[in-house]
C-alpha cells in the first residue's frame, strides 16, 4: 500500500511541476509571440501584396513587388551597397576592437579608466551624438574645415563626396561600437590559460608567435560570435546612415535598409517594403550561414 501511495505522489508531483511550468511559460510566450512571431508571418505575406496601411485592404499582386525589386537597378544597387558599406564598417570595427583589446590587456592602474572611457560612446544613443558630427562636418563653418583653413589647407566639401561620407559613417559606426566589441575580445583574451604563455616563453617563442599559436586559436569562439552577430547587425545598419549622411550625396550612400524604412514608414508602400525586407532578410541569413560554414570549416582544419 505504502509503495503505491508513494508512486502516486511522485507522479502527481511531476504533473504538478509541468502544469505549473506551462502556467508560467505559456502566457508570456503567447504575448511575446504576438509582438514578434506574428510580424514575422505578416512580413512574409506582405511582400506579395499592394497595401498602404492607411485605408483599404491589402491587394494580392503575386510576385509583382519582387519583379520590381529585381527589375529596377535601384534596389539591387542599394542591396550591394548595404553589403559593402556594412562589410567595411564590420571589418574596421572587428580589427580595431581587437587591437584595442590587446592594448587594454596590459596591467596598469589606469586600465579601468581606459576601459570605461572607450565604452562611453556606446551608452549614448546614436541620435544624441550624431549632432556633433554634423556640426563638425558643415562644409562652410564646420570645425574641421575651419581648422583646415587655419593651417593653410584646402577645405573639403564633405557632403558632396561619396568617399568622405562613407568614411565618416564608418568613423561614427566604429566610434560607437568599438568599445563593446573590445570588451568581448578582452573577455576572450583573459579566458586563455596564462600557463600556455609561460610555457611558450620557456620554449623561447617570440611575442608574434605567441599571438599566432596561442591567442588566435584560443579566440576562435569569440571571433565567430563577434563576426556573426556583427554581420547580422551591419546588414541592417541604417540609423548611422540616416543620421550622418541622409543617404546623400545624391543617394550615393543610401542603403537598402534605409530605403525599406522610407518605403514603409514614410511613403506607406508596404508591399514593396515587405518584399525588400524579405529579400534583405534572406540575404542576411544566407551570408551569415556561409560565414558560419567558413568559420567552422577553418575549425576542422586546425
Amino acid at each position: 500500500m505504502e509503495v503505491v501511495g508513494r508512486q502516486e505522489r511522485i507522479l502527481t508531483r511531476k504533473q504538478r511541476q509541468s502544469r505549473r511550468a506551462y502556467a508560467v511559460i505559456l502566457p508570456f510566450f503567447f504575448y511575446i509571440s504576438i509582438w514578434s512571431l506574428l510580424p514575422l508571418v505578416i512580413g512574409l505575406l506582405l511582400g506579395f501584396t499592394e497595401f498602404n496601411a492607411l485605408n483599404g485592404l491589402p491587394k494580392w499582386v503575386g510576385l509583382d513587388n519582387f519583379k520590381t525589386f529585381f527589375g529596377s537597378k535601384d534596389y539591387i544597387i542599394l542591396l550591394v551597397r548595404q553589403v559593402w558599406m556594412g562589410g567595411l564598417c564590420l571589418i574596421a570595427n572587428v580589427v580595431l576592437s581587437f587591437l584595442l583589446a590587446l592594448a587594454l590587456n596590459i596591467k596598469h592602474p589606469l586600465r579601468g579608466f581606459f576601459r570605461t572611457s572607450v565604452y562611453i560612446p556606446n551608452i549614448a544613443a546614436a541620435a544624441i551624438t550624431s549632432g556633433v558630427f554634423i556640426a563638425l562636418l558643415n562644409p562652410f563653418n564646420g570645425g574641421l574645415n575651419m581648422f583646415f583653413k587655419s593651417i593653410g589647407m584646402e577645405p573639403i566639401i564633405w557632403n558632396y563626396s561619396q568617399f568622405w561620407m562613407v568614411f565618416w559613417i564608418m568613423i561614427f559606426f566604429v566610434w560607437r561600437s568599438v568599445g563593446p566589441a573590445a570588451i568581448i575580445w578582452l573577455g576572450g583574451l583573459q579566458s586563455i590559460d596564462a600557463s600556455l604563455y609561460e610555457a611558450a616563453n620557456v620554449d623561447g617563442a617570440s611575442k608574434l608567435q605567441q599571438v599566432r599559436y596561442i591567442t588566435i586559436p584560443g579566440l576562435r569562439f569569440i571571433s565567430a560570435y563577434i563576426l556573426l552577430t556583427g554581420l547580422i547587425g551591419v546588414m541592417q545598419m541604417f540609423d548611422v546612415v540616416m543620421l550622418i549622411s541622409h543617404g546623400n550625396p545624391y543617394g550615393k550612400t543610401d542603403v537598402l535598409m534605409y530605403r525599406i524604412y522610407r518605403d514603409g514608414v514614410v511613403s506607406f508602400n508596404m508591399g514593396m517594403a515587405g518584399a525588400a525586407s524579405t529579400i534583405l532578410g534572406l540575404v542576411t541569413v544566407l551570408i551569415a550561414f556561409l560565414a558560419f560554414k567558413i568559420i567552422s570549416k577553418g575549425d576542422k582544419n586546425e
Binding site: W35, S36, L38, P39, L40, I42, G43, L46, F51, A53, L54, L228, I232, M235, Q236, M257, I260, Y261, D263, G264, V265, M270, A273, G274, S277, T278, L280, G281, T284, V285, A288
Partner: peptide, 20 residues
Amino acid sequence: CSQVVPSVLTMIPSFVMMSK
C-alpha cells in the same frame, strides 16, 4: 533561434500590425 532573426524581417510588418 529568436536571437538570430534579422530585425529587418519584423520592422515594417510590426509597423503594419501596430496600425491595424
